[in-house]
């Protein structure tokens, strides 16, 4: 009980410091302020539950960003389920990865990412924007490492197609 009280105080104390990091992370990854607000709320509410259950050994802003990442991936999963036609993109482009020498413009890349299907967007965001190693990406996406690597191949492929189209478009 005393442990819980300490954590409750700490979560509210942490709130002002952690909020810009959580919100900043979410808004940069999903590109929408309203969605980022919803996911920010989900993140902090999940933190309250975890604190009350007594299962937070290391209550930090970094941990909260990790929770935010989970909520982001859940959000993209929800979007994917609602948007069935994008399931087609998942099967398109089962190509062998070619080395791609092009330089990627980060600003344009954000626009391209926003236009990808949620599965691809999630995979590329976690692997490249967040810089997570593939096994961690697999954990977040609830897939095997092998399936995740295959997804990343298709995601990069879809990205290149869309990036090229944008350039040519």
């Amino acid at each position: 009980m005393a442990e819980e009280a300490r954590h409750s105080e700490t979560l509210l104390d942490l709130y002002d410091r952690a909020m810009p990091q959580v919100y900043g992370y979410l808004v940069s990854r999903c590109g929408s302020a309203p969605v980022a607000e919803d996911l920010t709320a989900e993140t902090f509410l999940a933190a309250v539950s975890a604190v009350k259950d007594g299962g937070v050994p290391n209550l930090t802003a970094a941990w909260l960003v990790g929770v935010a990442r989970h909520k982001l991936v859940d959000y993209w999963r929800r979007v994917a389920r609602e948007d069935r036609k994008l399931a087609l993109l998942d099967h398109a482009g089962d190509e062998i990865e070619d080395p791609w020498d092009a330089h990627i413009d980060a600003t344009r890349a954000r626009d391209v990412l926003a236009g990808l299907g949620p599965h691809h967007r999630a995979a590329l965001t976690l692997r490249y924007l967040d810089g997570l190693p593939v096994p961690e990406v697999a954990g977040h996406l609830d897939r095997t490492v092998h399936a995740t690597e295959a997804l990343l191949v298709r995601a990069r492929s879809a990205f290149r197609v869309a990036y090229g189209e944008e350039r040519d478009g």
């Binding site: 909020m19 810009p20 990091q21 919100y23 900043g24 992370y25 808004v27 940069s28 302020a33 980022a36 607000e37 920010t40 960003v65 791609w100 020498d101 092009a102 330089h103 990627i104 413009d105 980060a106 890349a109 990412l113 590329l124 692997r127 490249y128 924007l129 967040d130 810089g131 990069r156 990205f159």
Partner: peptide
Amino acid sequence: DPFDALRQPVVPLSPRPEFA
């Protein structure tokens, strides 16, 4: 990997004060 150029560390950003 050219995709490494996408790497974007967290940039803190405050939301609307009323929301917070």
